[in-house]
Amino acid sequence: MKKEENRKLTAAELPAGGLVEAGTAANFHTGSWRSEKPVWNKDKCISCLTCWISCPDSAILTAQDEKKGTVVSGIDYDFCKGCGICVRECPPKVQALTMEQEKK
């Protein structure tokens, strides 16, 4: 279902058998589920990418750095559901990620 199209499909329009095209997760903003959010401290981060590989929602954003290669560049709050896995997995000596209350 396309993001911009709010109208729900009819039985005649839907593919048979409940088939759902891959990639639809991009249309669901799981960020709205969050009660706490991870906050990333750029200065502490060593770009070990542990958080990136641990995040179940691919919500750790990365960028390419000429010298360091792939580095963390932030958190995609549209999809971060606030599970806290990244905070827990960030190396204890680094603690570049901390959990904070989500402000309404």
């Binding site: 729900k8 499909l9 009819t10 039985a11 839907l14 409940g18 088939l19 759902v20 095209e21």
Partner: peptide, 18 residues
Amino acid sequence: YTLGSIDLQDYYFEHRYQ
């Protein structure tokens, strides 16, 4: 594609109609 995903109040009925 995904087959056998959850289908709640908004789409289950259409699929059963199909």
